[in-house]
Simulated assay, not measured.
Amino acid sequence: MKAIVQESYGKWDTLKIDEIPIPIPKENEVLVAVKGVSLNAPDWRLLQGKPFVVRVFSGWIKPKARVKGTDFSGIITVTGSSVKSFKAGDQVYGDLSSCGFGAFAEYVCIDEGLLAKMPSNLSYANAASLPLTSVTALQAVRNLAKVKEGDRVLIVGASGGVGSFIIQHCRNLKAHITAVVSTKRIPQAIRLGADDVIDYLTEDLAQATTKYDVILYVNGSYPISIFHRLLSSKGRFVLVGSSNLKHILYLSIFGKSLSKKYDKSYQVLMAKPNAGDLSYITEVVEQEKLTPVIDRQIEFSQIPFWIGELEKGHIGGKIIVDLDGQK
Rank of each mutant, 00 (worst) to 15 (best):
N121G: 04
E149N: 14
P119I: 13
A140W: 02
F165M: 14
Q168N: 10
S129Y: 01
D111C: 07
Q168V: 00
I155S: 01
C109S: 14
C170K: 02
C109R: 15
A137W: 10
A105S: 15
L122W: 06
A158D: 04
I110Q: 08
E149C: 05
V135W: 03
N121A: 09
G157Q: 10
T136V: 11
S123P: 01
S159H: 06
S123K: 09
A116Y: 08
L154R: 11
A105M: 11
T133I: 05
D111G: 09
G163Y: 02
H169I: 04
V162Q: 02
G160N: 12
M118N: 04
T133C: 11
G157L: 12
G160M: 12
V162Y: 04
I166T: 05
G163I: 08
A140M: 04
G161L: 01
P131R: 14
I155K: 01
V141P: 00
I110L: 09
I110S: 06
D111K: 14
A145V: 03
A116V: 08
G161E: 02
E112Q: 15
C109T: 15
V141Y: 06
A127K: 08
C170L: 01
K146A: 14
G157F: 07
L154T: 09
K146S: 07
R152S: 11
F165Q: 06
V162T: 02
S134F: 00
A158K: 05
P131E: 15
Y107L: 14
Q139L: 06
A125K: 15
N126D: 15
V141F: 04
N121T: 10
L154A: 08
P131T: 15
L154E: 06
R171G: 00
M118Y: 05
A116E: 08
S123H: 07
V156L: 02
A128K: 12
V135C: 08
R171N: 08
Q168M: 05
A140E: 05
Y124W: 15
M118T: 05
P119E: 15
G163M: 06
S120W: 08
Y124R: 15
A137T: 09
A128Y: 13
N121P: 00
Q139H: 05
S159T: 11
S129R: 07
K148P: 00
L144Q: 06
